[in-house]
């Protein structure tokens, strides 16, 4: 998937260099040509269409931006109002059936969502230890992590 997106992007750069128009129009035309080429190769080799995956990934990127902004507003409120009312806790979260790259992506996403920060992963790579800022109720904190995890599995990991 990453290879195919990279090929798309490469065609765009090559086209805008070749056409001698290193501005917006050349780049956009190059992206369109690359998209058509990669989609054709998808059809030829019988792979799932990379355009649909791309749409899902863009969808997830929008969701990610939204939760990043919410995380920032939350921590800004905590910093700017006097007094502290966090109830921090370090909880463990199971990641048994993910490979290393997927665990890395999940850990980065967890760190950038509201009120959570990955502290450590266990030696065998089966648990993540997450510092939650508002975890009065442990089950609720784990539930929030589970929601992000489900979304990531559905929209990005199902290559």
């Amino acid at each position: 998937m990453i290879l195919r997106l990279g090929a798309d992007f490469l065609v765009a750069v090559l086209f805008s260099l070749w056409a001698g128009r290193p501005g917006w129009p050349g780049f956009v035309i190059g992206l369109a040509i690359g998209f058509v080429i990669v989609s054709t190769s998808d059809l030829a080799f019988g792979r799932p269409n990379h355009g649909r995956r791309l749409l899902w990934m863009i969808h997830f990127a929008g969701y990610f931006l939204a939760i990043l902004i919410r995380a920032n507003l939350q921590i800004a409120r905590e910093i700017l109002t006097p007094g502290f009312n966090q109830t921090p806790r370090i909880v463990r979260y199971p990641v048994q059936d993910l490979d290393d790259l997927q665990v890395t992506v999940l850990a980065n996403c967890i760190t950038l969502t509201p009120g959570t920060l990955v502290v450590d992963a266990s030696e065998d790579g089966r648990w993540l230890y997450v510092h939650c800022m508002y975890a009065e109720d442990r089950a609720k904190a784990v539930n929030g992590l589970q929601k992000l995890d489900d979304r990531l599995r559905r929209e990005v990991f199902s290559w």
Binding site: P88, R89, I90, R92, V119, W127
Partner: peptide, 18 residues
């Protein structure tokens, strides 16, 4: 005010088996 630290628990007792 930290409520619990399961990482320290697991480093002491070993992670739970599933």
């Amino acid at each position: 005010h930290t409520l619990s630290d399961e990482l320290a628990d697991d480093q002491r007792d070993g992670p739970p088996q599933v």
